[in-house]
């Protein structure tokens, strides 16, 4: 049901089916309001898409066309050199690799750790489980600022500042949010499957691998997709923990780029911005379902 629009005709069918009601609904559909509605939706779409269009358009316009008044709405001539420049002015590949590394590392570590922990909080029965799970939920309310400084001092004394470790290692400890999501999901799975696996003598890890994960694909993919997105977009933690150009992520590198070459060159800036936005957008188109599902899950269960 979720994700599908409420169909007014369905209302009629499901209901008592009185013809008069059907009629009033049909009349409602024909109202000129429909047209206005479409108009508003299109207008809003244009508003939402225009910035993205403008980003790409700026990247491919020649320099002379960037600072004209009135603005050149449609590029009359396309130049592609800015994308090359983005790669030569800043170590774009290096940043991309760093970002990809951190993001994928987090995806793998988060999914593994959260699966194990959520299994422990759902499919295992033990005393104190629910009390401890309440703590998990409570930590979701905690503003990160409260732990920021002591964490920084801890990592700094481990000589981790300036390495990827503060951005990767914590993923092995799971994320309260996904532990929560997965636990809810695991609990909704039918118990018989687990029981019969146990009767067959399967150990917990085997059960997780052969029974749990195949059934939980939606929630696992949702966790993976969101973890990837958050890490790809993250600005704050790299800002705090990464120190040298060599280990910058795209966010940080691009930010630094404002202060260096790019502030002076909007074309290159927009080219770099477009490049950085491609992976999330592509991911979105491939995994749209999981985004919507994940967002909905968080929205409804929160």
């Amino acid at each position: 049901m979720r994700g599908r629009a409420l169909d007014p005709s369905e209302v009629g069918v499901r209901g008592a089916g009185a013809a008069a009601r059907e009629l009033s609904l049909r009349r409602a559909l024909r109202r000129p309001g429909r047209l206005a509605q479409q108009a508003v939706l299109v207008l809003v779409s244009v508003l939402f898409l225009f910035p993205i269009y403008w980003m790409v358009a700026t990247a491919v316009k020649p320099d002379a066309a960037l600072f004209v008044n009135p603005p050149q709405w449609v590029p009359t001539q396309l130049v592609w050199k800015r994308f090359e420049e983005a790669f030569t002015y800043i170590p774009f590949l290096r940043y991309t690799w760093n970002t990809l590394y951190i993001s994928l590392y987090n995806v793998v570590a988060t999914v593994i750790s959260c699966t194990l922990v959520a299994y422990g909080f759902s499919r295992l029965e033990w005393r104190g489980r629910d009390a401890l799970f309440f703590v998990v939920i409570a930590t979701m309310m905690l503003p990160y600022q409260v732990t920021l400084i002591p964490q920084y001092i801890i990592f700094s004394h481990l000589h981790w500042v300036g390495t990827f470790r503060p951005l990767t290692i914590p993923a092995w400890f799971g994320s309260a949010f996904f532990i929560f999501l997965m636990r809810q999901f695991f609990l909704s799975l039918p118990s018989d499957l687990f029981d019969s696996a146990k009767i067959d003598g399967a150990g917990h890890l085997r059960i997780i691998w052969h029974v749990l994960t195949p059934l939980s694909k939606p929630v696992l993919v949702t966790a993976a997709v969101f973890t990837f997105m958050w890490n790809w977009n993250d600005f704050f933690w790299p800002l705090i923990y990464l120190t040298s150009q060599d280990n910058y992520t795209l966010s940080l590198g691009l930010y630094n780029f404002i202060g260096a070459v790019a502030r002076t060159d909007w074309g290159v800036l927009m080219a770099a911005a477009s490049l950085m936005s491609i992976p999330p957008v592509v991911l979105f188109f491939f995994a749209q379902r999981y985004f919507v599902e994940g967002i909905t899950l968080t929205g409804m269960k929160g």
Partner: peptide, 20 residues
């Protein structure tokens, strides 16, 4: 899809775009 798309643009590019 269109309404959701902007949330996919990472913060740093988004702010740059805003300023521009």
């Amino acid at each position: 899809t269109i309404y959701y798309l902007p949330t996919m643009i990472p913060v740093v590019p988004a702010v740059m775009l805003l300023a521009w």
